[in-house]
């Protein structure tokens, strides 16, 4: 990542020459480490209990089935890193899907429809950013309003589920690249991975990304340091909205339909993935790769429950809730200990 992953303990202050060279994990990586451990345990448990669990096919499916969630979680990470929250992403996914379905049934080509449905998310994000920044409305309420707005628009665009028959989308949904033993990847998966890579570079290697972290650390300080706080804050919501628009496209490819009730509660999954991925909801600490791991944890929970067969689907929710509990309590303890 940005700085050395492992750093020796360093003397604080200047006077004390503490030559302790014991290698220790930087405090910033501890939450993510927790995620890695959980992931490893799940893989080990799954692999030992079920045959065919640790196969390329299963792992590829975790990514393919959750590619839209990966994109959403990446966008959400930006917002949460600044200390905000975005409740509108689930509704934007639905809106983007509905609009694409509506446009396809009205004869628009994929070349126009696809950019439009991503830009719809961008637009919603821009509106949210302006509400948060210019009118100083709390992100919670502003994105709540955007959520209602997007859902309402969905019903206007597509009161019923609209199937998508556009050849491009169909092709995208059916394409598989990979080996015969199941280690495959779909265009959606590729898009998701590309988004992760871009987000990683943007967050860690651009001034904008570093400003995102600075705002999460202390917005007032960032402002007094002369950083472009206003622009950055609006931009994170634009990014999250765009990711949601793109997520909506991926979901439309996945389900080959546009439906106004798509993605209900998906924002919670995205937030859960980010939190489980080790990002602090207070902002300023966390990694986009952590959020990807968080999505992987959520995906594996579902996979294990499917493999088990006897477990009912509602256990997914309960386990996610329990994991959330463990992670937020652990994060809290870490913060307390660091003080």
């Amino acid at each position: 990542m940005a700085t050395d992953q492992l750093t020796p303990t360093r003397s604080s202050g200047t006077a004390a020459p503490a030559p302790r060279t014991r290698w220790r994990i930087d405090a910033r990586y501890q939450p993510v480490l927790g995620t890695v451990v959980v992931l490893a345990v799940m893989l080990a448990v799954g692999g030992s209990r079920y045959e065919n669990f640790l196969t390329g096919r299963v792992m590829a499916n975790v990514l393919i089935n959750n590619s839209f969630l990966v994109v959403l979680a990446v966008g959400m990470t930006f917002v949460i890193l600044t200390g905000g929250i975005d409740l509108s992403v689930g509704a934007v996914v639905a809106l983007s899907g509905c609009i694409s379905a509506w446009m396809f049934t009205h004869g628009w080509s994929a070349g126009i429809t696809i950019p439009v449905c991503v830009l719809v998310g961008t637009l919603v994000g821009l509106v949210v950013g302006v509400m948060v920044h210019v009118f100083e409305i709390q992100p919670f309420i502003a994105t709540l309003a955007a959520m209602f707005l997007a859902r309402g628009l969905c019903y206007l665009v597509a009161p019923e589920s609209i199937p998508i028959t556009d050849p491009t989308i169909v092709k995208l949904s059916q394409t598989r690249w990979g080996t015969d033993d199941g280690l495959v990847i779909t265009p959606s998966g590729v898009i998701a991975l590309a988004v992760v890579a871009i987000a990683f570079v943007v967050l860690h290697y651009t001034r904008f990304g570093r400003t995102v972290y600075a705002i999460g650390g202390s917005e007032q300080s960032a402002r007094l340091m002369g950083l472009p706080v206003a622009r950055t804050k609006v931009l994170v919501y634009v990014i999250s909205g765009t990711c949601a628009g793109l997520g909506g496209l991926l979901f439309a490819i996945f389900s080959r339909s546009g439906y106004s009730l798509t993605g209900v509660g998906m924002e919670l999954d995205a937030i859960a993935a980010v939190v489980i991925g080790g990002t602090l909801l207070t902002g300023g600490s966390g990694f986009v790769l952590g959020s990807v791991l968080g999505v992987a944890v959520l995906g594996l929970i579902q996979t294990i429950i499917t493999f088990q067969g006897t477990l009912s689907s509602w256990w997914t929710k309960i386990v996610i809730g329990a994991l959330l509990l463990v992670f937020v309590v652990l994060q809290r303890l870490l913060v307390l200990r660091r003080r």
Partner: peptide
């Protein structure tokens, strides 16, 4: 008024 979640180098050089 610095960001104590970031490194010294970043605080000095941010922007």
């Amino acid at each position: 008024n610095l960001c104590d979640n970031l490194s010294v180098a970043e605080n000095v050089m941010l922007g």
